[in-house]
Design a protein around this nucleic acid. Structure first.
Lengths: 164, 164
DNA sequence: TAAAAATACTCCATAGGTATTTTAT
DNA sequence: ATAAAATACCTATGGAGTATTTTTA
């Protein structure tokens, strides 16, 4: 059993479909399907009823889903507590940046940061906007410099989750 | 983050030492050490203070440990609920057996079970007593035929967690 | 100097992906 | 006939092991 598996279960319960749950979890349908099948095998409980159109939670599955929500909630609380206890000006600042602007900004940014924030060195992560967004969501990045997605303009947007 | 990592954290908090925690979790010391280090990195919080003699939980770590206990508790509750909702006479009976007696019992056991319990075929797992015990504890086995450990006699002991 | 933890690798289990088939409406 | 889940197969991340070094009372 695994926190990720439980998230898959909750996603299917909420969205009523393996495929939608998979994209909500950013994994492929067979991956999610396989993990849920394995979990059902491991627990010895059929959690979902598949009828080719929608996935319904079985009667026994209801209890599992409810417990899964509690586990995930508790794990989220742990992450929140960790983030809260973390000194935002201590430790490296993990900054995502798209390759287009990385080489231009880095020569200015890094030396300035080294002088201004000696206890919080900047760690650059260069990648596509589409890859940076989930990292930001997962707390793997503190901030990112990216392009706006699905917008008409071309102005850079700076998204941050850290009060630095 | 991972349920197993949280168990490592709780084990260290309880036992005050990485090495002891590792053997309690049935993993090597470097494995447990590495996972805890990685978790501390991921959360951005130093959970333990190492001083070469004992591992103490840091002030910030206390909150993490408390949350970790809740997560594990919730996960255990899920497993318990799953086991409770499972029909004990449905699905394969996973029976551990030591190699010493396996070949002698199997020819009698399996055909008899096939006749008597058609909806619950017996799945034999042959291994050492020392390996069967944790499987039994994890619920991977329903029952096991083993030798008594650390006992003077030599009578076979049948341990079961399933009312079959 | 004698413990305990960290590091350095190697290995393998398994989560994940793509392509395809099966199933049920 | 069509949409969704399961299966088959391959890849790769990362969890785990052994051997070794580093650290600190």
């Amino acid at each position: 059993m695994n926190l990720r598996d439980l998230q898959y279960v909750v996603a299917v319960a909420d969205l009523g479909q393996f495929g939608r749950a998979a994209s909500a979890c950013n994994v492929s349908q067979p991956t999610l399907s396989g993990q849920i099948l394995k979990l059902e095998e491991e627990l010895g409980v059929q959690i979902f009823e598949r009828d080719g159109r929608v996935a319904r939670v079985t009667e026994r599955g209801e209890a599992i889903v409810a417990h899964a929500r509690r586990v995930i909630r508790a794990a989220d609380d742990l992450k929140t507590a960790a983030a809260a206890s973390r000194d935002p000006l201590e430790g490296p600042i993990r900054l995502g940046i798209i390759a287009t602007v990385g080489p231009y900004l880095a020569p200015y940014l890094l030396p300035a940061a080294a002088r201004g924030l000696p206890r919080a060195p900047i760690r650059l992560v260069e990648d596509l906007t589409g890859h940076l967004l989930p990292l930001l969501a997962d707390g793997k990045l503190d901030a990112a410099i990216m392009r706006p997605i699905r917008a008409s303009g071309s102005r850079k947007s700076r998204s941050t989750s850290r009060s630095a």
